[in-house]
Write a protein that binds this DNA or RNA. Structure first.
Lengths: 345, 345
DNA sequence: TTGTAGGCGTTATCAG
DNA sequence: CTGATAACGCCTACAA
């Protein structure tokens, strides 16, 4: 009656076939400890034969919790989002969890309400918050209040280790710019990221660190701000090149803007890296595709996505090792062809 | 008792507050026609006051259908996947549907079984199949069998209009290559896509069409195959340039390989477009970021993603206009700076 | 036009 | 260790 051939097998079918109650089958499904080993083996065999798979909707209703991981973001960098997504999906593969992507609008006054509704309705197992909204403490508070696991991704540790995945942007930029200084560059421009982004702030600080650290002074005149997009990189690059002809190098706070700076240089007929060295940040696909291939700081977003997923799965049957690992992931300089020593004056 | 302050309001709370049965509330939720207008207004007011939202898990269980749209793919082109995703999400925004991303491995023998399990477990409202797996008729059959709506995206119409979203790759490539011919190019190389991809086939045919159509003959020697990735574009470009020094133009079957061809040209010290014109396909972000900016065929994947989502939502309360529209979307040539007339010999 | 009884497939409670 | 019984929140069928 339960399984008349049309639908899939249910817990009732298994219970009947095994001659036990459905609660016992449920115990097998949920790996309950209090279970006779023989009973378990018997039921597991039947489950295997029938190809029975528990219905996630019914479980979700009973457990008041879904087997979904939410990716909540309003990130202007498509490559970055995609990288995180791939990292998460890699961990979810083979588990009973699926990824649900939920973009929001950080400019909107209803953003917090939107996310609240998303979490209340879908009741995901946990959500991954991407920068810049991950920097909003209100959202973390919301998750706690709703009893939803969460991981905040950022350019610095933003929360408790189990709720954080971070990169060391400041130190990485410091090192990258220091590299330029060591090559002999003395007039280095900065294309900063948009205000309100922690990543922009950290990278700015890293740039300043390298200035104060070396034989130079920080020159606020050699700083232009972009919005992390290509066009803003062109504009900022052009302003920089127009205002300070002595510039021999530019550090852009992400690869897209670095590509824009490259365009600005080409438009002025400059040779890169002969006349101008350029360094980016992210190491997204575009970096290697440009000509010359872009020297950039590799942002380990794939690994960060993986770590975020592992943290959310910690404590479940799909838990993986390293789940509790250090939330900090190191960014490192990838040297390609867009950097050289400055020409001797 | 139902709502003791801890949890969210349920249909019972609304029914009690409104002094009606829960079935009546259910009728309001589901926009039933047989409902007294006063009753409806009254209940709707209470729903608004309480902020009540129906529990999707319970609905999914009762309806045996989830309010999820699945994006199933194994596509090597990250930008393409992202574009489709954005298109779908744009349509889903504001509806009760969410997007669930489910990548698969087309090389695996268990791919069909994987997708079957995904659909059986999640019971999505519908799924969007991306190329190349969308070209597999077995998957369409599977969806029909499981009673799951689906839309197949491809470089040609692959199914009934309500299950298809397509672009006119062949004609678009024909026009693009014809453009090169019209500029005076007589030795044009092709970097084809991987075998087994319908898009690769269509674009190849479009290339041949332009050859036979014009003052030239199709020369199989000037064809190299890549796998749609950057590195393969470099390799194919180098082979092309080495084998046929008379080449003045290359058409690459996607932007990534075009970027590779550009690298191959630069490595040989060629000027683009002075010595060599290059045309790509897709118009993904990279096209505009390269130097020189890449002339390419714009593949309207965002629009195609939107259309796919609209077709899936057709017939639901979230249905949008144009849902039944023509499944064909036109690709058009975007002229940038990577193409010029060949130098006079 | 509205209500009642029962079911969707699973898990929790609590007794045996 | 195992099993009745009652949720979980909503929907369908049938009745009123």
């Amino acid at each position: 009656m339960d399984n008349d051939g049309s639908g899939k097998a249910t817990i009732n079918d298994i219970a009947r076939l095994a001659g036990v109650s459905k609660k016992t089958v449920s115990r097998v499904i949920n790996r309950s400890a209090l279970l006779n080993e023989d009973t378990r083996q018997n039921i597991e065999a039947i489950i295997r034969e029938t190809g029975y798979v528990p219905n996630p909707q019914a479980r979700a209703l009973a457990l008041r919790r879904n087997f979904l991981i939410g990716l909540v973001h309003d990130n202007p960098n498509a490559q970055m989002v995609l990288g995180v997504q791939q990292g998460i999906l890699g961990v979810l593969k083979g588990t009973e969890y699926e990824l649900i992507v939920h973009p929001v609008d950080r400019g909107s006054t209803t953003m917090v309400a939107d996310i609240r509704q998303f979490v209340e309705r879908q009741r995901p197992h946990g959500i991954v918050l991407l920068p810049p909204i991950s920097e909003n403490p209100e959202l973390a508070e919301l998750c706690r209040q709703l009893g939803c696991r969460y991981v905040r991704m950022g350019s610095d540790v933003l929360d408790a280790p189990e709720n954080s995945v971070a990169s060391n942007d400041r130190a990485a930029v410091h090192a990258a710019v220091r590299h330029l200084v060591d090559l002999g560059h003395r007039f280095i421009g900065l294309i900063a990221g948009p205000e309100g982004f922690r990543s922009a702030f950290e990278r700015f600080e890293g740039f300043k660190d390298a200035m104060y650290d070396g034989p130079m002074h920080f020159n606020a005149q050699a700083v232009e701000r972009g919005d992390y997009r290509f066009e803003s990189g062109i504009a900022a690059g052009e302003r920089l090149l127009a205002n300070e002809p002595r510039l021999t190098a530019i550090f852009a706070s992400n690869d897209e803007m670095a590509a824009g700076a490259l365009h600005a240089a080409k438009r002025r007929g400059l040779d890169v890296p002969g006349d101008l060295s350029i360094v980016g940040f992210d190491d997204t696909a575009i970096a290697a595709h440009l000509w010359p291939p872009l020297t950039t700081v590799r942002w380990p977003i794939l690994e960060m996505g993986r770590a975020a997923a592992r943290k959310l799965l910690a404590g479940t049957r799909d838990a993986q090792p390293e789940a509790a690992g250090d939330p900090l992931f190191l960014s490192t300089l990838i040297e390609r062809a867009s950097v050289a020593s400055p020409r001797v004056a």
